[in-house]
Design a protein around this nucleic acid. Structure first.
Lengths: 146, 146
DNA sequence: GCAGTTGTTTTGAGTTACTCAAAACAACTG
DNA sequence: CAGTTGTTTTGAGTAACTCAAAACAACTGC
């Protein structure tokens, strides 16, 4: 039945090789632990990884996350007030909507208008590389609770 | 000479009373410790406050900062990778430019165009309250070092 | 101007989310 | 398949807060 050769593992391995990183079990497990569209923290990733690979340490998870986000395979976001979150949607510069009540995070495409994202009104001599936009508000569920 | 009656203390006291907060020495000292245009962390504020009010505890500084930013007297920003910073420029919704090399932070007016800040392309049912924009890049000093 | 109430500050401990370093180990290279 | 180099493990350590109880100080009304 060959159930062992999951397609995402192949994809992950390719990403790793492309970045010049060694293909290891913990790295494949971390990559596999993050579903598309999710935003999860190191602790939750660790929990999922250890289900599959029981003697992986939390430090390894941190190391893998640093390697993968450094290589651009994962994206790390750090919303104010919560631990760092990781997502596997990369390549596009999308932004985030964060619920001020439950901390839920969802992706949102670039701001409307012609990419104003990269144009502050005055640059103060900075050489700007990226713009990060975070929208704060109440998610549908939390609105319903009031 | 009446040097004791600094004008910023009066202003700070007025802000506090307006917010229904008691006027105390630590609060005035914390407010006075942050210069206009600065972005400093709790530790640096603590260092400055203790110069003037030696037996203030760090916990008090945290408490004061929470009270003042909660009341809108100070603004708290939390750039990824550094401790929370506080600034006393409030009321306008300006954004920040952060140096990826030395972590310097400067203010920047709202994004160009007609306030696209509050309009993500899809809201996903969120009731959006604020938009936060952070520009990342190299500050003039760090560019000069390369 | 003073007592009472309520909000602040102090003191002390505890926690979360990481980070660092050394030694054991496992991937890729030739 | 041996060697090299990058990873992972193990273990310790830290920064930046947060919580709780007791001591204290601001404002209120008398």
């Amino acid at each position: 039945m060959l159930t062992d050769v999951a397609p995402d593992r192949q994809e992950a391995a390719a990403h790793l090789r492309e970045a010049g990183l060694k293909v290891t079990e913990p790295r494949l497990a971390v990559f596999g632990a993050i579903e598309l569209g999710e935003h999860i923290d190191a602790d939750e990733i660790f929990r999922r990884v250890t289900r599959e690979l029981p003697n992986t340490s939390l430090q390894t998870v941190y190391g893998v996350l640093a390697a993968l986000s450094g290589a651009g395979i994962l994206r790390k976001i750090e919303p104010a007030g919560s631990p760092a979150l990781y997502e596997n949607r990369i390549g596009d510069n999308h932004h985030h909507l964060v619920c001020t009540s439950c901390n839920a995070v969802v992706d949102v495409g670039c701001v409307v208008g012609e990419a104003p994202c990269l144009t502050p009104s005055e640059t103060h001599g900075f050489q700007i590389a990226t713009a990060e936009v975070t929208f704060w508000g109440l998610c549908p569920d939390c609105r319903a609770l009031t």
